[in-house]
Write a protein that binds this DNA or RNA. Sequence first.
DNA 1: CCGCATCCATTATGATACTG
DNA 2: CAGTATCATAATGGATGCGG
Lengths: 126, 126
Amino acid sequence: MENPPITSYSTVPGVDALVNELIGRVADKWTLLVLEALEENGKTRFSALARAVPGISQKMLTQTLRQMERDGFVHRTVHPVIPPHVDYRLTPLGHGLGEAFCSVWLWAEANLQTVADARADFDARD
Amino acid sequence: MENPPITSYSTVPGVDALVNELIGRVADKWTLLVLEALEENGKTRFSALARAVPGISQKMLTQTLRQMERDGFVHRTVHPVIPPHVDYRLTPLGHGLGEAFCSVWLWAEANLQTVADARADFDARD
DNA sequence: CCGCATCCATTATGATACTG
DNA sequence: CAGTATCATAATGGATGCGG
């Protein structure tokens, strides 16, 4: 090894696994796209979210929203009317997560072309 | 709606879908954990990565590394010796992605307990 | 031996239809 | 409208094999 491996930023043992679990939960395609949709649109209905996140299935949207609700990122409000009306909004915790991901979003926009070029290069090599 | 919906930070039409595709690629559990392992350890062997990313299968490690190589995040060096020796290191592009994700990592560490509490709350409610 | 490709069981996801 | 249930399909993990 060339560098002293930093296996943790924390001094508490066993935290690594927990952080990895949380990262694994949060670093999910649909979670991230739903988060962004809620960040952009504020309080949003289920059907509007389905439209705002292109390509997501109803099942994945439901499942993702449930996970995010359980993790405390999203607050779910049911209006007992007919037809049913349910809307979702970010909690402060969820908004904080969105802010943390903001730099990733900016990176993605800034490096779209670079990645495209790298792929073309790789595919051309073999 | 309560806020003016910002559907894009970019002025170029059709870029949204491309950004979403890239986000989808990058917002992957294994990609992120491998990225972090490489960020922490620098140049790392395949077998060392397998150890550094607990729970990953060899197949997923291979697949994730190939994707990251194709996207230009990782450089792969093969030393033609016996036994074989292959190591991986981040490219500047990959390092930039790691920096972008740094805030997510810090957020995860800072909010571990909050999320745990939210989950306990949710599970207790029903 | 190490890196990695391949086969197979298990799990996750998608498409569609249906209910309160 | 907001889900749930059901079934087909794709992704993943585990074990094994193999070339260098």
